[in-house]
Amino acid sequence: MSTISRDEVARVAGLARIDLTSDELDRLAGELDVIVQSVARISEVATADVPATSHPLPMFNVFRADVPEPSLPVADVLAGAPASEEGRFMVPQILEED
């Protein structure tokens, strides 16, 4: 397993949208390295013939009927918003389109 560089932590922090200080970057690079090294030993037993489990209990086809329920009141919807205008959430300018 490769070690985690400071640059790698910075890249991942960008993906995770978290501003990190220079000190945090230094510290996390070291800590993550130790953690990843210690958890990586799971690959010893995670061989190709073992199926993955993503749910603790095997269940399928849990569906909901297509029956509408009333919306949350718009006042409740916007009550927690840092900013709102005309019934909508006000957010800073978006520079990148997806």
Binding site: E8, R17, D19, V91, P92, L95
Partner: peptide, 27 residues
Amino acid sequence: TAERVMSATRGAGFGPEVKRRIILGTY
């Protein structure tokens, strides 16, 4: 920009253990 506000909010709003685990999980 929204992107910078998101990053600043998460940088300031999350404590060290949460940041550690989010970074680890993202990785």
